[in-house]
Amino acid sequence: MKLYRQREWKAYCADQIKLHGGRCAHCLHGSPEVVLQVHHRIYVKGRMPWEYPYDECDVLCRGCHAKEHGIIMPSNDWELIAHDDLGGLDGECERCEQPLRYAHMVTHPNWGTMIVGEQCADKLTESTVGTEGHAAFLNYLNRRKTFVDSPKWDIAPNGGRSIERADIVIEIVPTDDGKFRFNLNDVKGKGDHRTLLEAQISAFDYVESGKATEYLAERRRRIAERNAANS
């Protein structure tokens, strides 16, 4: 699972709050002390919380949001849908109000979406999905950091570099406009990234997900079919 989905949720919430003029749609409170939350009027299975049209949601203060959902938060039927590393204690668990760095997004068919810590995620989902997912998430982050900082990178005079991972040669090259793009086994990439680090992260995620292996295998198959047809 890609781990940056909460940033999309935060951007969606920020846009909704702007559209609502920074006020609760029910009680109209909008002081800096008021915590505003996005309330989904309907829920569509399989749709991420930030994939709803603006007119299908309202912005409510925490009190009005609780009233809208029946005041009592359900204790079961929650599902974990994403994790995120905020980089510091920049978040707050919406269940216990403790500061958090590693955010877990959980959703309920009737209550909606919340950002919580791993322990609250465990309690709400009645499982160890929060703590286990957290451990897996940290493991993934550590492997990504090791990849970026690896001494095995061969650095080229033009600032590019290359490394082999999962039997794939990853080459990161600078573009003429100062950006970076990665190639796989001499197959030229198309997407540009603003920084070298962003290109390294994107290449790591693409290889780790297995999509790079699938893409290269499919490309080899198409080339073999084309050569057979021309012979």
Rank of each mutant, 00 (worst) to 15 (best):
K2L: 07
K10Q: 12
K10S: 02
D15N: 10
G21L: 00
C27Y: 13
C27M: 05
H29M: 04
L36A: 01
V38I: 08
R41F: 10
K45P: 10
K45E: 10
P49H: 09
C61F: 10
G63N: 00
G63M: 10
G63W: 15
C64R: 05
M73I: 12
E79Y: 14
A82V: 00
H83G: 03
H83F: 15
L89S: 07
D90N: 15
E92M: 11
R95M: 04
H108A: 02
P109I: 01
N110T: 02
A121I: 01
D122W: 13
E126Y: 11
E126I: 10
V129R: 06
T131H: 14
H134E: 11
L138W: 10
L141C: 04
F147T: 06
P151Y: 10
K152P: 03
K152Y: 09
A156M: 14
G160K: 14
S162C: 01
S162F: 06
E164R: 02
R165A: 05
D167G: 08
I170D: 07
E171P: 00
E171K: 11
P174G: 03
D186I: 02
V187D: 06
G189Q: 08
T195A: 09
D205P: 09
Y206I: 01
E208N: 07
S209Y: 11
E214D: 11
R219W: 06
R219I: 02
R220M: 11
A224D: 14
A224P: 05
E225H: 13
A229I: 02
N230A: 15
